[in-house]
Simulated scan of single mutants.
Amino acid sequence: MGLAVVRFPGSNCDRDMVVALESLTGTRPDIIWHDETQFADSIDFIALPGGFSYGDYLRCGAMAARSAIMPELLRLAKKGVPILGVCNGFQILTEARLLPGALMRNANLDFVCRDVTLRVDANSSDLLKNLDDTADYIIPVAHHDGNYFADSDTLDRLENDSRVAFRYKDNPNGSVRNIAGVVSENRKIIGMMPHPERAVDPLCGSSHGRLIMESILESLSVAA
């Protein structure tokens, strides 16, 4: 079993992701600094955490998408290694063209930090197949640039291919078609703005994020 969390300058949810993954699997993930060029030989799952990589200069995630570790991540993505990008990690995945669309400034121009209600399309990926597509999932968001946008043709393709993984019931940022997360063509890469790693314990206000991460990890047969 090989788990990894990539840390960029400005990441601030990397520890949250490490703690969540360790609590779910019993295995502490490798923390990969952005200047490294390789992951462990046996890698089963990679997480790109939230934060403000490179201070969000230029565009959110744009500089991180060109870090030294990214060519190896792109190679592993092509091999089908599952990847989860959360918040800034989602932005990095779009900037690296591993996921379609872009994350723009919130429609109200404010930083949004609160719980939101999500619906999941469990058919969008085997990584999410254990989730209930009729249930509400309460997950926190914390972002200034979470407004998902893509052109109409891209949106229609995502819809027709069941690649919209999550939608907001109470859209906090103006995202087109209430999209909170999408998956790649091979359905092994998930990008989402809400933070499931911050909702793995009831003491944090919700444990619904645990359900999302358990589904992803159980599909890899690595959950404890």
Score class of each variant (00 low, 15 high):
residue 1 M to E: 14
residue 6 V to L: 12
residue 7 R to H: 11
residue 8 F to C: 03
residue 9 P to Y: 15
residue 9 P to S: 12
residue 9 P to F: 12
residue 11 S to D: 00
residue 11 S to P: 03
residue 16 D to F: 04
residue 16 D to S: 00
residue 20 A to L: 08
residue 22 E to G: 03
residue 22 E to W: 09
residue 25 T to E: 14
residue 30 D to V: 07
residue 30 D to Y: 14
residue 31 I to M: 15
residue 33 W to I: 11
residue 33 W to F: 15
residue 35 D to P: 01
residue 36 E to N: 12
residue 37 T to D: 15
residue 38 Q to Y: 14
residue 38 Q to C: 14
residue 40 A to V: 10
residue 43 I to Y: 14
residue 44 D to W: 01
residue 44 D to V: 11
residue 46 I to V: 14
residue 50 G to F: 09
residue 50 G to L: 05
residue 52 F to N: 00
residue 52 F to W: 11
residue 52 F to T: 01
residue 56 D to N: 03
residue 59 R to Q: 07
residue 62 A to R: 14
residue 64 A to K: 11
residue 64 A to Q: 02
residue 64 A to C: 05
residue 67 S to P: 05
residue 71 P to G: 12
residue 72 E to A: 15
residue 72 E to Y: 13
residue 72 E to H: 14
residue 72 E to K: 15
residue 72 E to R: 12
residue 73 L to S: 07
residue 74 L to G: 06
residue 76 L to Y: 12
residue 78 K to W: 03
residue 78 K to T: 13
residue 80 G to A: 12
residue 82 P to I: 04
residue 83 I to G: 04
residue 84 L to N: 02
residue 85 G to M: 03
residue 86 V to G: 10
residue 87 C to Y: 03
residue 91 Q to N: 03
residue 91 Q to S: 07
residue 93 L to A: 02
residue 94 T to D: 01
residue 96 A to Y: 08
residue 96 A to W: 09
residue 99 L to E: 05
residue 101 G to Q: 05
residue 101 G to N: 05
residue 102 A to P: 00
residue 102 A to D: 01
residue 103 L to Y: 08
residue 103 L to A: 01
residue 108 N to F: 02
residue 109 L to S: 11
residue 111 F to V: 00
residue 112 V to A: 08
residue 114 R to S: 03
residue 114 R to K: 15
residue 115 D to G: 11
residue 117 T to R: 08
residue 118 L to K: 05
residue 120 V to R: 00
residue 124 S to K: 02
residue 127 L to D: 08
residue 127 L to I: 00
residue 128 L to P: 11
residue 132 D to C: 06
residue 132 D to M: 11
residue 133 D to K: 05
residue 133 D to A: 01
residue 134 T to M: 11
residue 137 Y to M: 08
residue 139 I to G: 03
residue 140 P to R: 04
residue 143 H to I: 03
residue 144 H to G: 15
residue 150 A to L: 00
residue 153 D to S: 10
residue 154 T to H: 12
residue 154 T to Q: 08
residue 155 L to T: 08
residue 157 R to P: 03
residue 157 R to M: 13
residue 158 L to N: 07
residue 159 E to N: 13
residue 159 E to W: 09
residue 159 E to I: 08
residue 160 N to P: 00
residue 161 D to H: 08
residue 162 S to V: 02
residue 162 S to C: 13
residue 164 V to G: 11
residue 164 V to P: 01
residue 165 A to T: 02
residue 165 A to L: 02
residue 167 R to P: 10
residue 172 P to I: 10
residue 176 V to D: 06
residue 176 V to L: 07
residue 176 V to R: 10
residue 179 I to T: 04
residue 179 I to R: 03
residue 181 G to M: 00
residue 182 V to C: 06
residue 185 E to W: 09
residue 185 E to R: 08
residue 186 N to W: 07
residue 188 K to R: 14
residue 194 P to N: 09
residue 196 P to N: 04
residue 200 V to Y: 15
residue 201 D to R: 14
residue 201 D to L: 09
residue 202 P to S: 05
residue 204 C to G: 07
residue 204 C to V: 14
residue 206 S to K: 00
residue 207 S to K: 09
residue 208 H to G: 11
residue 209 G to E: 07
residue 209 G to A: 06
residue 209 G to W: 14
residue 210 R to Y: 15
residue 211 L to F: 14
residue 211 L to M: 15
residue 212 I to Y: 08
residue 214 E to Q: 10
residue 215 S to K: 04
residue 216 I to S: 00
residue 217 L to N: 03
residue 217 L to H: 07
residue 218 E to C: 14
residue 222 V to N: 04
residue 222 V to A: 06
residue 223 A to D: 08
residue 224 A to Y: 15
